[in-house]
Design a protein around this nucleic acid. Sequence first.
DNA 1: TTGTACGCGTTATCAA
DNA 2: TTGATAACGCGTACAA
Lengths: 352, 352
Amino acid sequence: MAALPPKPPTLAEIARSAGVSTATVSRVIKARGYVADATRARVAAVLRDTSYRPNALASGLRAQRSFSIGLVVPAITSNPFFVNVAHGVEEEGLRHGCKTMIFNHNGDEALERYGVDRFLERRVDALLICNATAAGNVEAAMAAGVPVVQIERETRARSMAVLADNHLGASQAMARLIGLGHRRIAFIGGDPALLPYSGPQPLSVEEQRLAAYREAVDAAGIVARPDYVRIGPYFEMPQGSGRAGREAMDALLTLDERPTAVFATCDVLAAGVLQSLHAARLRVPDDVSLIGFDDTLAINLAPALTTVAQPMQRMGAEAVRLAMAALAGAAEPRTVTLPTWVIDRDSTAPPS
Amino acid sequence: MAALPPKPPTLAEIARSAGVSTATVSRVIKARGYVADATRARVAAVLRDTSYRPNALASGLRAQRSFSIGLVVPAITSNPFFVNVAHGVEEEGLRHGCKTMIFNHNGDEALERYGVDRFLERRVDALLICNATAAGNVEAAMAAGVPVVQIERETRARSMAVLADNHLGASQAMARLIGLGHRRIAFIGGDPALLPYSGPQPLSVEEQRLAAYREAVDAAGIVARPDYVRIGPYFEMPQGSGRAGREAMDALLTLDERPTAVFATCDVLAAGVLQSLHAARLRVPDDVSLIGFDDTLAINLAPALTTVAQPMQRMGAEAVRLAMAALAGAAEPRTVTLPTWVIDRDSTAPPS
DNA sequence: TTGTACGCGTTATCAA
DNA sequence: TTGATAACGCGTACAA
């Protein structure tokens, strides 16, 4: 059985078997140009019992396109967010005849650059970068003449981008909690200072969420305590966990006046909050309401988490669409901002 | 800025700029063969300020290798298990100079075949298939002369394979629970009948786990009730959730004599169990102990889940290693079975 | 309607 | 030590 690699048949071999030229075989396969029915049938027959598969390397070389997309992500296993984006990229890419290759860099700038370079060598048709660590890496890709799309977060590099409306999302979360009657709402989020930012948006993702929280607190005239705001490292790369969320909630529980609701800016963080509450023998939402962000872990937690959903798959798909449009010669760099929405589940209720 | 795609420089262009032949440039780049120091320096200089990147398509065509690996998975977003495997594949692949491409098929046999074909066209150096849906798909890949490795589950196709020791894992889970003093232990698992199996192993993954459960119950002489065994669909493709686990636990809670501990054969299922228990206002591990399988969601649940870990990343890496060895002309098809182990966290305790 | 022939960018062989 | 040159497999002008 399966002896030495039986080198796959080539167009020339098919042509020989069918007694025609390679050009004709190619025409049959591509269903392009004139081919006599009789000839077509003969070639088709050979094709059938030869299990011929065009060599994508060769045709890519010829076509000057690889029909592949490169996706660079920080750490695909640490936050389900990235897998969902990747899934969206893959599906939409397929629709354009492209395969997706993924590269993880664990937040390491040099490694990210390495990944970009490898993709460029492979002549990917498009390069998508989720949470780029450095503008320089994005620019390197742009300089190579490949359509580049930044996803979720932007550096100051002016490429195309697909973002979620984080200010909207945070506002929606707060509106839900305030609407339920909560007046003591804590905020657990990522530290803006940890990700030095100087992109085209006025504020980073973290800053937008925090700003929306503060605005909501002010607008509703509810309790505004500095110690209700806990910011720290989102999660540890590469092995993510909700430790930060857990510790933040532990601290909140020591306060004289405990918050009755918590807005965690990431489901992974919210999962940690749930662990803290469980350990303290407090019930959600009876004792404390909790709302997350992303809609990743949410559906699997106990209780199922009310959360602000980001259209993760759609973000990936949209990035592919932008890139393909650019490839087809479309307009100038474009930024797409997608809306978020709240998914009500079992972790929110009126304060007791 | 970024005007028309400035086609990347080719070897010939570099050669012209440096006043040498393409052969020489190639020698400099590959650091292979004799090159005069002066010449090398001249070429290196040109290389530096040209941002030349070899065209991987061309060199792949020439080398008759694509330096890429195809990974076929059922549904990467429905169970974190697959991402972890993918991560292992990617890292190890990189170590061999290979990029990894992933294809999702949502459990659809025809779609899986489609993915295999696309990979074959791209002349992947190796094809890894996680949970193949049909032996025919695996065989198609083998027939193309590519090293094929099945991961986690086997069909009857006799390719290389990387498996986890599921019987061992389930035994370890039961040993932990029994060791804690539990005598009424329920089993919530996947339905073997749902995945028609006829592989080389005597039992399917599901059957192995269930068999180990039954053996442990018998050996320890603890309560053996048929209604303590709940089997059903693992999770719904493509959007996984722990619904099955939740419903199974709901049913268990209606029993006259409730189990004091539960062994769920998948963390996703265990997450559903936790939801059921939470809704019933029962505490884990105070009222019921719970142990999962996989170590995917485990660390994020409340309470953090004691679980049987599978070496997911290692499984992916091992698959790559097997494939690369085969590519290098190594021996016959080989099956590697990796051990599992228990990770103690907060969901298990002696019965109250 | 079909076939010939060239080029896509690299690399390896062979001759100089 | 270097340079011509010939593949690798495909697709497409262009000629027939």
